[in-house]
């Protein structure tokens, strides 16, 4: 994958930078140029916390090409305390014990290797909270 495409997402993938509309307070991840609620164009950057709650999940058994080595793997949507949601893999877990409502911690992980020769893609995955 061409590196620019990976690079421009670093603020969101590395640091979980989200945006809050200065006019109406609506929050976005990833950030946007215009608020879909009030039309505001000015946003403040803030960082999403490192803990969230699972709102739904599945276990991918049949994966797309670049992920087939990882299958089966769990993937879910989590909700932060401020209401924003994020999708990501749920790792280091027993997939049979996953539950809606469980708490997870966000950990920095490698998401794609691009066939051992491309630029590595890092972002956050979810790990069941245990401490």
């Amino acid at each position: 994958m061409f590196p620019a495409r990976i690079w421009r997402e670093f603020p969101q993938r590395y640091r979980r930078e989200a945006a809050i509309c200065k006019k109406c307070g609506k929050r976005y991840f990833p950030p946007r140029l215009i608020c879909a609620e009030c039309g505001g164009r000015k946003f403040e950057t803030y960082v999403l916390p490192d803990e969230a709650t699972v709102v739904t999940f599945t276990v991918i058994r049949v994966a797309a090409q670049q992920y087939s080595d990882m299958a089966p793997y769990a993937i879910g949507i989590v909700k932060f305390d401020d209401g924003l949601q994020m999708m990501g893999q749920i790792v280091d877990c027993d997939v049979d014990k996953l539950k809606i409502g469980m708490k997870v911690r966000l950990e920095f992980r490698k998401v794609q290797s691009h066939d051992h020769h491309g630029v590595l893609s890092y972002a956050h995955k979810f790990v069941p909270k245990w401490y």
């Binding site: 991918i60 090409q65 990882m70 993937i75 999708m87 794609q112």
Partner: peptide, 28 residues
């Protein structure tokens, strides 16, 4: 295309950078 190639092509209907990037598929 192979089955995983078709899975990849179909997944382009989702958000590439914030859904597919994480390995989600349409069945997912």
């Amino acid at each position: 295309v192979s089955g995983d190639g078709a899975t990849y092509a179909l997944a382009t209907a989702a958000d590439q950078e914030y859904e597919v990037f994480n390995g989600v598929t349409f069945p997912g």
